[in-house]
């Protein structure tokens, strides 16, 4: 039993200070980034005040993709090394990624109405984000449906890998339609196309989202490890004659 929890024990020791630290960083970055983006950053010369939605929207989109990638890495580790901590991590990341993805879709819709004149278009970027959201939902549904936890973890890992292949395929297949969503503005040849007065609050918000995700994921992982320890302890007690 001790060897099985050797690595989770190390994780518990690490996360006992890393989780509060991430939470504090997240609160601090939101406290700076939110007022900066929503109140003090300049309005866009074309989009006007509605550009402020993007300080909420863009980091959500980045990390919805980033978290799915991290889940895929955890799933590979789960399938290759059968590592308990990888299962717990992938499971803990899924609801956060799904929430970011949902937030990205909702804020994008709110931004699209004043800017593009429509709540929703079946554009390549929007459609592939929606498919990513559906993939998150399927992943969570599979976890919820399979009772045996180890089996649920392995099956969900297979689904996660398959979804990771599907998402770029969907992305390129919907490129067929003329795309309304803009191309990348930050990581492109010739440097960022965003003015520093807007880029700085955007990057602070991206940091806030990352820190918040790290804090929530670690909290969920700790709760899950405590739950498993409690169940193992209950099983041991039940097995011992009084």
């Amino acid at each position: 039993m001790l060897t099985r929890y050797a690595n989770p024990a190390r994780f518990m020791a690490l996360s006992s200070w890393a989780m509060p630290l991430a939470a504090v960083l997240a609160v601090a970055a939101f406290a700076i980034g939110l007022p900066w983006g929503l109140l003090y950053a300049p309005a866009d010369y074309q989009q006007g005040e509605s550009v402020r939605i993007l300080y909420v929207h863009v980091p959500a989109a980045w990390w919805a993709l980033g978290i799915y990638t991290a889940m895929t890495v955890a799933s590979v580790m789960s399938l290759v090394w059968r590592h308990l901590l990888a299962d717990v991590a992938a499971r803990a990341m899924a609801p956060v990624g799904a929430a970011y993805c949902g937030l990205c879709l909702v804020t994008g819709s709110l931004w699209g109405e004043p800017t593009w004149g429509t709540w929703w278009v079946w554009d390549a970027r929007l459609t592939s984000m929606l498919v990513l959201f559906l993939t998150y939902l399927g992943y969570l549904a599979l976890w919820a449906s399979v009772e045996d936890e180890t089996r649920a973890a392995r099956l969900a890992a297979i689904l996660c890998l398959a979804g990771f292949i599907n998402i770029p395929i969907v992305r390129f297949s919907v490129e067929w339609w003329s795309t309304l969503h803009q191309g990348p503005s930050l990581l492109r040849q010739g440097g960022s196309a965003i003015d520093p007065s807007m880029l700085t609050p955007l990057l602070i918000m991206a940091g806030a989202y990352a820190a918040a995700a790290a804090a929530i994921v670690m909290a969920l992982m700790r709760a899950e490890i405590y739950r498993r320890r409690a169940m193992a302890a209950a099983t041991r007690r039940a097995a011992q004659p009084a």
Binding site: L137, G138, L142, L159, N166, S173
Partner: peptide, 19 residues
């Protein structure tokens, strides 16, 4: 292994039907 897995299969598979 899921009882009445039909709806679950639909949720899992429909994103893959997109391409």
């Amino acid at each position: 292994g899921v009882r009445r897995g039909g709806v679950l299969i639909a949720i899992l598979v429909l994103p893959f039907f997109a391409p």
